[in-house]
Design a protein around this nucleic acid. Structure first.
Lengths: 145, 145
DNA sequence: TATTGACCTAAAGTCAGGTTTAGGTGTTAC
DNA sequence: GTAACACCTAAACCTGACTTTAGGTCAATA
């Protein structure tokens, strides 16, 4: 059993955010003692891990809440929950691909500015043609333009 | 030269968003004709590509604006701009790593729910031990917990 | 006993990143 | 010549995800 302060430290999430998640219904089965103080158990910690993961995958609080409500409905929602994770898997994979494309652009720009820095100006680089680029850079450029 | 409507279609960005970027100073050197209509040239399109890329890497509008102002200051900011891209490269790489960690969690959950679905309930899975997991799943689980 | 520290709630406030609205201009299509 | 379109501005509005504030409880320490 952990206090909200301990959980905040463990996950590096502000206390106010944990309370907000609780208020929004993301922390189902979170117990409170007689004076209203939250007591986090292992399954609440697992819920927080899941919340962080679903947030990273781009899911909104209200949809995470819906997922959590399925959890508390038990066996009849197992398939729903599985499908939800399958979909989030696709979402994350798409996000990773997007980021890799952005990384291509950034790598091109890093090369561009490294060259421009050597030249002391952007004259040459502004008008550079595909043929003048090293092979790796050419491939990156094509991916991005 | 492209109209705002054409650019909106090309990039799949709402017209209102393009106008907002212009208002916020992200589209420097964007020309307008005598009656105030925006005319996008190739270098404006490149700016939009860069904006999209920097946004994906997590940069805020106000910082993208600052970058764009460096662009218009010319040669004396080349090193600044290069360093900015080097930093964003790190940011994106960190983001990709985070997403890969989230993907691990999701893959574990996909396996978990596939098993639970077969069983018709979560009893077995709720208490599963490391030893009972297939090797690949065990590795994933360790990465996540 | 009084003060400190960790917790609590409800409600208001904040911030980024747009989007919508209201009212207007200029050019082409019937 | 009038209607339909694509564009314009300024300003208000919206949404999600928190964060801050104000006022209060409770247990342990000085």
């Amino acid at each position: 059993m952990y206090s909200i302060g301990e959980v905040s430290e463990m996950f590096n999430i502000p206390i106010s955010t944990l309370r907000y998640y609780d208020k929004e219904g993301l922390l189902i089965n979170l117990e409170k003692d007689k004076s209203g103080i939250r007591k986090f158990n292992e399954s609440n910690l697992e819920a927080i891990r899941v919340i962080e993961c679903l947030k990273k995958s781009g899911m909104q609080i209200k949809d995470i809440k819906e997922f959590m409500s399925w959890v508390s409905e038990g066996n009849k929602t197992i398939t729903k929950r599985k499908n939800m994770f399958l979909k989030q898997k696709e979402n994350i994979e798409a996000k990773i691909k997007e980021l890799q494309k952005a990384l291509n652009m950034i790598n091109y720009k890093c090369w561009y500015y490294t060259q421009a820095e050597k030249d002391g100006n952007e004259k040459r680089m502004k008008n550079i043609t595909l043929k003048e680029m090293p092979k790796e850079i050419r491939e990156i450029w094509k991916n991005v333009h």
